[in-house]
Design a protein around this nucleic acid. Structure first.
Length: 494
RNA sequence: GGUCCUUUAGCCGAGUGGUUAGGCAAAGCUCUGCAAAAGCUUCUACAGCGGUUCGAAUCCGCUAGGGACCUCCA
């Protein structure tokens, strides 16, 4: 089987064939750094991180570009709108770039907590002003944009006469025109759907740059066109982002690229679905967002307790990226327990030594099929949920071997070796899961060894009062002691 | 109003027309000094109505919920 990816453009799964064999160019619309990223934002970037990792796992050489939007795009479509960064800066009396810096670093910290890989290139809008101006100029030269009082608008109706503007989300121009609401400050534009490529700045705007049309700043959509074409070429393989970007931002990106280069930028458009809370989309404007740190500390009205970044990531992996995912305390709780069970089995698996035995054909075949299902599921539009389901079916096999209920030789040496390597590849390399915070403190390990030793002596003397006291009190402070079937004692935090 | 998506057991959620997805919770049993963990077993659902088909959760139509986009938002 080969990788198939759902393409928003064609509304079906397509066989993935890179433009250059062996190489993949992938662009993902990154965050706007004027406030903290919330969990919904994180979901998208975590999803694309898994996709990036899986492409690497398939031995593609991937250039992954994810931008940082740090130059003001307008609030709403109002020409009078304020640059978001300038607005914030005035309120807090600090430089716009201070805000950008703070939230950029915050974003990277959060992404690191989720153990996502940094993109190959993380370009900023403010770092590519000249590219955006050049692209705007070409679009004007090609006749698809016009100037009005220092602002450049893209002429959607003219473009649509030649190419279908609403192609990405399957909409007709007439329908789009009908749906447009009346907003203030529309008079400058020729068409109601026209959007700004470059916006004239007022003197008080803090972020503005010189251009052939006077001082101004770029429209929101042009940055992604400029940066994707610069780093990935006029045509590349994958373009991704949240589903909310498809109708406007990505639609405009396609129009800009077509108007500039006469080419549609990406072969495949991928869109991740929204994270919801009580069935409603988590969004900045609704103010129902969870911030990552609220989750990690449990400081949120809807949460009973804190959840680790890996629990949250695992929770996301149990759903397909194109499905909405509803966020709730119960669901997180279930994920936390599930991940713990899976991870313990995984760690035990890695410690096992194989010895030959009589192969149980049924178990052998089942195990092999489940392992091969990992790749098959991921090849089917990155079905991480199915991979995890397969893993959970393998867990009882691993645990039975560990507890001596089944000889390790019940499965063949090849299958066992494959199991060890595939579980590692998937859990650590593709999913990027890392063990729960392990204590680096040697003292703790030494103290635990001592306590376990004392407890063992107590048990030998049938002094269960003492042995239970040790176990119970450790449990109270969050350390779980387990008597294993082979007589050994294990412990872990949480 | 327009364009779409969605509705799966107590909860969360996969799902290629014909075979028990999976997780969590719950119940029973086994193991254990007692626990915990683990193993085994049980709980077999697809909004409603109609149609296509030998056969539909899966395809088609209608109805009813829910949601997204059409305005900044991953």
């Amino acid at each position: 089987m080969a990788l198939e990816i759902y393409n928003t453009l064609t509304r079906k799964k397509e066989l993935f064939t890179p433009l250059e064999p062996g190489y993949v160019g992938m662009y993902v619309c990154g965050p706007t750094v004027y406030s903290d990223v919330h969990l919904g934002n994180c979901r998208t970037f975590i999803s694309f991180d898994i996709i990036y990792r899986y492409l690497k796992y398939l031995n593609y050489k991937v250039r992954y570009v994810r931008n940082i939007t740090d130059a003001g795009h307008l609030e709403g479509d109002r020409d009078e709108g304020d640059d978001k960064f300038s607005k914030m800066a005035r309120a807090q009396k600090i430089e716009p770039m201070e805000i950008v810096q703070r939230y950029t670093l915050g974003f990277r910290d959060v992404m690191q907590l989720f153990n996502t890989l940094p993109p190959s290139i993380e370009p900023t809008a403010t770092g590519h002003i000249s590219e955006q101006i050049a692209m705007t100029q070409t679009i004007i030269d090609n006749g698809y944009a016009y100037e009005k009082n220092g602002t450049i608008y893209f002429d959607v109706e003219k473009y649509n006469a030649e190419k279908p503007y609403g192609i990405l989300t399957n909409r007709k121009l007439e329908d789009l025109l009908e749906g447009t609401r009346d907003l203030d400050g529309q008079d400058e534009k020729k068409g109601r759907l026209d959007f700004a490529l470059w916006i004239k700045a007022k003197p008080e705007h803090l972020m503005q740059w010189p251009s052939p049309w006077g001082m101004g700043f770029p429209g929101w959509h042009i940055e992604c066109s400029a940066m994707s074409s610069k780093y990935l070429g006029k045509q590349f393989d994958l373009h991704g982002g949240g589903m909310d970007l498809a109708a406007t931002h990505h639609t405009n990106e396609i129009a800009q690229n077509e108007a500039c280069f006469h080419k549609s930028p990406a072969q495949i458009w991928m869109h991740t679905n929204m994270l919801t809370v009580n069935g409603t989309r988590m969004s900045k404007s609704l103010g129902n967002g969870f911030l990552p740190h609220e989750l990690f500390t449990g400081a949120h009205a809807l949460l009973d307790k804190a959840y680790s970044p890996m629990t949250v990531k695992f929770f996301m992996l149990q759903t397909h990226y194109r499905s909405t995912l509803d966020f709730s305390n119960d669901a997180l709780q279930a994920s936390e327990k599930g991940l713990k069970r899976l991870w313990e089995a995984y760690e035990n698996l890695q410690k096992m030594q194989y010895t030959l035995g009589e192969i149980n054909v049924e178990i052998e075949e089942k195990t092999a099929t489940l392992i091969h299902g990992f790749d098959e599921s991921m090849d089917d539009d990155f079905n991480t949920a199915k991979v995890l389901a397969n893993m959970f079916e393998i867990v009882p096999i691993i645990n039975s071997i560990k507890d001596g209920l089944m000889p390790i030789g019940s499965i063949s040496q090849n299958t066992f070796a494959l199991l060890q390597t595939k579980m590692k590849s998937y859990l650590e390399d593709v999913f990027g899961l890392i063990p729960a915070q392990e204590s680096n403190n040697n003292n703790l390990a030494n103290v635990m060894e001592l306590l376990i030793d004392i407890r063992k002596e107590a048990k030998l003397k049938k002094d269960f009062a003492t042995s239970d006291k040790i176990r119970n009190q450790l449990s109270n402070i969050g350390i779980v002691v387990k008597d294993e079937k082979d007589g050994s004692v294990s412990w872990n935090i949480g």
